[in-house]
Amino acid sequence: MRANFIFSEVWIGLRRNLTMTVAVIVTVAIGMALLGVGLMINSQISTMKDFWSDKVEVSVFLCKKNDPFPACKGSGGVNAQEQAALSQQIKAMPQVESVSFEDSAHAYEVFKTTNSGNTVLLSAIRAEDMPESFRVKLKDPDTYTAVIEQLKGAPGVSNVVNQKEILEKFFALLESLRWAALVVAIILVFAATLLIGNTVRLSAYNRRRETGIMRLVGASNIYIQLPFVMEGVIAGLIGGVMSGVLLMVSKVFLFDKVQVYLANTVLTWETVTKVILITLIFGVVICILASFVTLRRYLRV
């Protein structure tokens, strides 16, 4: 096999169909980038699920003085007796693994760190404004309904909030984002295969003289087909590299920005590299397949 011969043929072919080649590269780049974003969201969802699975709690908020919650009306705030009774009741529940008490001061500390950027909010709220709560950790986070049923409306309880429920809404949002990215990626991959098919067809037409002579003098099928397939592969590779750049940009400017709100679940460069490799290989394989399938139809060998 004469490599320089193949490459000069490929170069001529790519230049001759420049507009088609650019169309293929752009479609592959965007398609693979969206596929990559889908994979990256996917990996985020699973790291976040792992991270939160042993941390989700049910928060049982207690009534304060003049609390606007309907359950607290006229109670004048929780009293020590009610608080002790609640503590007893929660500890007695079979689903509960552990329970801790968070007072106003501690709640304010937590509030301060999570809203460290928001000075207006911080200056408006004082430590006394923060509600006190029991933080209940369940043996199995999925068994929250019974616990919530029993504690809602118990004397001194203003509200019961299940973190898992909030997180699930958030995960559902992420999951639909992932599906949207993957569906658009599939459509673009489909468009890319059609474009590649068209490019190869044009190329086969432009080079019909050469391929006719090659057949005649006994060039092997691989030798005749390789320049066409290489055109697809090179367009796919360039598109793949561009999608890699897009993915790195989206990690720095999108994922890392969102990550600020979701502690401890950083999208690692290792994952990004893995995703880029997967999309690159996938893109090139798609290009090879599309080229081969079209060649079978348009290039008699």
Binding site: M1, I213, V217, G218, A219, Y223, I224
Partner: peptide, 8 residues
């Protein structure tokens, strides 16, 4: 030469 190049 083309005839020889393409058969390697």
């Amino acid at each position: 030469a083309f005839a020889l190049e393409v058969i390697g």
